[in-house]
Nucleic acid binder design. Structure first.
Lengths: 106, 106
DNA sequence: ACTATATACATCGCCTGTCAAGGTATATAC
DNA sequence: GTATATACCTTGACAGGCGATGTATATAGT
């Protein structure tokens, strides 16, 4: 059990949705921004990131489209949907509640 | 994904150790106290609780002994070990750090 | 006597998110 | 020509949570 697995587990989707609230983005960029924001204390592992994208898209919380780069590697951009915004807000509330519970118990 | 699974995942052991810091106790009582402390907003599922006991004892963070009840169901009491106290403090620190990271990202 | 409920412990097997390992392709810098 | 950065993706194993199920003792109500 380490800081990047069990304790963070369950927040991956919320973290991604939060990033997409700011602007459409793609996997690599989202992860880079997460690392910058946390002074390299945290990163999403690629397999975790991409499996979360699949889940979120399957649930209708994000949609995707290919970027129109004419150079460099192709990018798959993601956009948060209306349902995704609702789910994000719900997840934020869950977090606030869970945080209080945990603080009470540990 | 709800408050009793992914977000709480990884806190089960810390919650149990915290309860045992106060006094030796047994599964049923620990769970009851958790429910009371959280106004019935949270409980550990029995399977989760007992599998955590196995893990914690296997890791040397708790030890167990049978109570001397002469009536009613038998109770297996648990006691936190010196290693358990250290692990608890480490887990608390991990939580404080993880909490900051999550707040930054969601 | 029977039934329900509370107390108390325990195991089995499934589910799901994480992630190590591996793979593909393009572009730049030395 | 080879290392590094950018960018995406899949497979399979692992581990914790938990529904379902089982056991046993004691009490309260009918």
């Amino acid at each position: 059990m380490n800081i990047t697995s069990d304790i963070l587990r369950g927040h991956t989707e919320t973290i991604i949705l939060k990033a997409l609230l700011e602007k459409d983005s793609y996997g690599y960029e989202i992860n880079k921004r997460i690392q910058e924001k946390t002074d390299n204390q945290f990163e999403l592992k690629e397999a975790t990131l991409y499996s979360a994208f699949r889940r979120l898209e399957g649930d209708g919380y994000i949609s995707s489209y290919w970027g129109d780069e004419t150079t460099g590697a192709r990018r798959r951009y993601y956009k948060i949907t209306a349902e995704g915004r609702i789910f994000y807000l719900k997840s934020r509330e869950d977090w606030d509640k869970a945080k209080q519970l945990i603080e009470t118990l540990i």
